[in-house]
Amino acid sequence: MSENILVIGGGPAGLNAAIMLSELGVNVALVERDSFLGGNPKKFKYKFLFPDMQPADNVIGELIKKAESGGNIKVYYSSEVSDFKENGKKFDAVIKSASGSETKTFDSVIVATGFEHFDPARDAKYSYQLFDDVIDIKDLERMMGENNFVRPSNGKPPKKVAFILCVGSRDRHVGNQYCSRVCCTVSVKQAIEMREHFPDCEAYIFYMDIRTYGFFEDLYWKAMEEHDVQIVKGRIAEITSGPDNTVVCKGEDTLLRGPFEIPFDMVVLASGMEGGPQSPEISSKLGIELDEHGFLKPENVTLSPFKSNKPGVFLAGACTGPKAISDSITEGAAAAMNAYTYAVKNR
């Protein structure tokens, strides 16, 4: 008799976990809340991935194809775990979907519920949704993906674009003290893409620190040295409307001291990552711990970042904190191995 393992969430982490388990001969139930697989990268149509600018489809598309090509994976679309109970060392879960509810017993569980993009509208200083030309990184990613990079206000190509880092991150005012880790690299990547396709458009990045960690630094150097992206130190305190249908970024140049109010055609907010409403929901449903940042809490952040505090329930991907896609995929594999070991031990 083969093992039954439940994977919650069909993003990069959940998909990779499901695929690995399926290859081990495990019966996987993959529960996805959307009507499609791929998670946030698919939902917001990420086009190219850092650091090597490969098409997102190479990664996400590949994972989806593998998961959907049958094997031992049963995908439940537009569904959720509506009830969850421990049953000895095993777990009874009710999977609710449009076609009804299904109760099943699983040997172990992998939670890969991911993150939500911070909604910049929650922070009034950025005037997101107030001005059409203020967008955020996921909006820009979608625009680039649809080959429709124009100013939303008038449909014309912009000539001067500002990227603002740390939107919804490292800001006690919005309740998020942590760094979202990838927004710097994503913004730098987008600035490069923009300069490559629209060389007439100037790119400025307003930063407090540029955290393109590890080899992502290469992208940051490339942006400056090959694409003349200008970095300006200072966080933006206010976005207002300016003359000639511009948006004005108000900030302090902390290197020269002194205020600036610079008009731009378009402003891109590097909104960070949040645990989203799904994290507390899954935390209370499964009885696993939530951390002070609103993400799921690993049992030991260094020794076992893929384990929850409840034996048999494992964590993978951005549900435990901001993460790059590659890290999520790695964690998916790590959680799969651990979930499999747990299932085999308690057969």
Partner: peptide
Amino acid sequence: SRVNSDFDR
């Protein structure tokens, strides 16, 4: 005003 109002690229 002391405010810098443009970047001249």
